[in-house]
């Protein structure tokens, strides 16, 4: 899983590339740690190239969402492929995370 983070005006753009599974979820947690703090909590996550997420991955997005909400920001995930979107739908995460 490749994570690239860039700042854009009033939001932080995060691009994900690859699979998010047991083997790399710990690294992913370190990669997104900077997003959990700071005074610019608005985050847009580009998911076009994310091919899979395990339930541990869902937990990461949930933690990020909670952190953003605590700072009164907004997090959106965009461009999710159907297979990944399905996981979010099944678990009900689509109800708490904004997916465009």
């Amino acid at each position: 899983m490749q994570v690239s983070i860039s700042s854009q005006d009033s939001k932080t753009l995060v691009t994900l590339d690859g699979r998010l599974d047991t083997s790399n979820v710990d690294q992913f947690q370190k990669d997104i740690a900077p997003l959990m703090q700071g005074d610019n909590p608005n985050i847009e996550i580009d998911c076009q190239r994310m091919t899979y997420t395990s339930s541990q991955g869902l937990r990461m997005f949930l933690m990020l969402q909670k952190s953003v909400m605590a700072r009164h920001g907004k997090m959106v995930m965009v461009g999710m492929i159907p297979q990944v979107k399905e996981v979010f739908d099944i678990t009900g995460f689509s109800n708490i995370i904004t997916i465009i």
Binding site: L62, D89, I90, T91, G92, F93, S94, N95, I96
Partner: peptide, 9 residues
């Protein structure tokens, strides 16, 4: 209906 996974809210 998925509702939401248990333990979060």
């Amino acid at each position: 209906k998925p509702n939401i996974a248990v333990g979060l809210f």
